[in-house]
Design a protein around this nucleic acid. Structure first.
Lengths: 240, 240
DNA sequence: TACTTAATCTTGTATATACAAGTCATATAA
DNA sequence: TTATATGACTTGTATATACAAGATTAAGTA
């Protein structure tokens, strides 16, 4: 008995559509988006709904709005990846450019000791689902990440296919888990052998290391990830 | 002839009020704000107006909203949100531990070519005030930053003493310039000779490199900084 | 007691409407 | 020709209303 909880709000749909169009170049840097009223008529929506979508695009840095003029596409730098904000990597880079390889499928294990964030007893007892991925942008390996999810009420997670899927999306669509915030530590470190091999760079070359804690809408449920990033060609990007 | 725009939107007023209350401790970490309907009645506003204010508080990291529950104050540290602050491996670094040395006092120059952000003609023509600093935490050099400010309406800036002062504070107190946003790119790179010397690390050792654009409340006025960070002992920390 | 149900809080989504204010092209008058 | 004014766009602010959906508490039932 599963009622369809795939219900996505309308403002979200039009947000995704416009973002996709911007990423695909339908609208380019400097172009004007259709006006709010035009978007209303086109998609049969009320203006506040359209505005909600546009505000999200502003927040994520895709457009800038000017009173009296319109909404201008402002996404300048496709090489900068907006992973620092709340959006996941997929959302930041654009789906078509991003390829995800699973190095280790989701596996139930004990937590590593010591872990880079302090864990509650409940988290420790539940064990840890570990997932290693390599993510490529235009065939170039850019991210190597290890994700740690407390094994609490995630039925069949270990048998899910994750290839070329966004972790955030799998969590949202299948488990109704939304990321609502988090924090992260960032360092520049020399690549160790394994990291260097995965990212195809020299051992000892500088890589970005992020340790993140992601908070979710499930009360008290957090997950963690350790992320190595090759910034030779791409750089991390954040707005604030 | 500029008539004073004394007209401040209502949603802005209530936003400012709630923010002040949070900063002053009227509402503390973990407290619930009054519900949207209560705020409506209290201030005689419609709910969308109140929601606009609350959404701004969410965006700025002061609160988190939970459907069915309410708005919870989440501001942990009083630092500007999104601007990565520094944290030690064991305990957080207090203001008293931070020391700022001026390597090059504010000097009027031409802009470097090429510059790491695209500049407007107005910015180019005005020239650039350049300021180099070294920032130490507990006597250890951690940041080496170069700041670039367009020379537009900044009287006597080049003769200001900046030693052990915050650039943000000088701008706010003396020129009424507030930073309201910005974006940044982050890379891990090998330290070149000069950077290595300043940060007292080996040449070629990994350092964090941030290139930031800071937007201000002055219409169209932005400034820029390039920041090298030694993350061997300290790491950058950010909430989102 | 233990469990279920219902009521009632909360925020989220969505519509319809109105007017203010900034921008720009064009028509009009000097 | 050169200003000026107008009108038709744009986004910004604000209200009133309705229902959906999550969370919590209290009442009711086994």
């Amino acid at each position: 008995m599963r009622m369809d909880e795939l219900h996505i709000p309308r403002y979200r749909k039009i947000y995704e559509m416009l973002r996709r169009h911007i990423e695909e170049g339908v609208y380019q840097e400097g172009d004007f988006l259709p006006s709010e009223n035009e978007l209303c008529k086109l998609h049969n929506l009320a203006r506040p709904t359209v505005r909600q979508a546009l505000d999200a695009l502003v927040k994520d840095g895709y457009i800038k709005k000017h009173r009296g003029k319109g909404s201008i596409v402002s996404r300048k730098d496709p090489k900068a990846i907006g992973i620092l904000s709340i959006v996941g990597t997929t959302s930041a880079v654009g789906r078509h450019n991003l390829q995800t390889k699973i190095l280790t499928p989701p596996t139930l294990e004990q937590w590593e000791e010591p872990f880079f964030y302090k864990l509650s007893n409940r988290e420790k007892e539940s064990g840890c689902i570990r997932l290693e991925r390599l993510r490529l942008v235009k065939e170039v390996p850019v991210f190597y990440d290890i994700n740690y999810l407390p094994n609490i009420n995630l039925p069949r997670f270990t048998s899910r296919k994750m290839e070329n899927k966004s972790l955030f999306e799998v969590l949202r669509k299948n488990y109704k888990i939304d990321v609502i915030g988090g924090d992260q530590r960032i360092r520049a470190i020399p690549a160790k052998e394994k990291v260097a091999r995965y990212l195809q760079i020299a051992e000892g070359a500088p890589v970005l290391h992020l340790q993140r804690k992601l908070e979710t809408n499930r009360n008290g449920y957090c997950f963690y990830s350790s992320l190595y990033c090759n910034t030779e060609e791409y750089s991390l990007y954040g707005k604030f």
